[in-house]
């Protein structure tokens, strides 16, 4: 399947198959205004299957959120139809209002306006610690979906 190249914007490639929709949701891209191409289950030499998201005329996106949802994805910044920058994603050191604390004793379960803040404690195990109650959560694979906002 062919999707036209974009002149200016972002191409998020090598997204783990099935994660593309989540990425569009959490990057808070206004799909009523922006031109977005979303390809699901494209063939991939590296992963077998992958999702791809192309967003026209948007450069500034939240890399921390992207890194958390799928840090194996690659991000290419496009200007004048050419890749001007490649960004390697990493798990962010701190994330705010992306994942929720699942500890029923945590203050965030009652204080609705308190931002949900987590700090990376173990990159390999993909574990984060809640700033308030210190509960540890893993964002590995399907576990992430359970604790996302």
């Amino acid at each position: 399947m062919l999707v036209n190249t974009i002149q200016r914007g972002i191409v998020i490639d090598h997204i783990t198959a099935g994660r593309g929709a989540k990425i569009i949701e959490y990057l808070d891209i206004d799909t009523k205004v922006n031109t977005v191409a979303f390809i699901m289950n494209a063939s991939s030499k590296r992963h077998g299957r992958k999702d791809i998201v192309k967003i026209e005329n948007v450069i500034d996106i939240d890399m921390a959120v992207l890194g958390l949802i799928d840090h194996q994805a690659t991000v290419n910044i496009i200007e004048n139809g050419k890749i001007v920058r490649k960004i390697n994603l990493q798990l962010p050191d701190k994330v705010m209002n992306v994942i929720r604390c699942r500890n029923p004793r945590c203050v965030t379960s009652i204080e609705t306006n308190a931002p949900h803040i987590f700090h990376l404690i173990d990159e390999e195990a993909k574990e984060y610690r809640c700033e308030y109650c210190d509960d540890i959560v893993s964002v590995k694979g399907g576990l992430l979906d359970e604790i996302m906002h």
């Binding site: 500890n103 203050v107 204080e111 509960d135």
Partner: peptide, 29 residues
């Protein structure tokens, strides 16, 4: 009333706040 609002208000009157709360992390809020 939220913990945040209570703390904001009380800090108009007192010089120091001591808080006990059943929820974990409430004093940080």
């Amino acid at each position: 009333e939220s913990i945040a609002d209570t703390a904001s208000t009380v800090s108009c009157y007192a010089d120091l706040i001591v808080m006990r709360h059943p929820k974990e992390g409430a004093p940080r809020v």
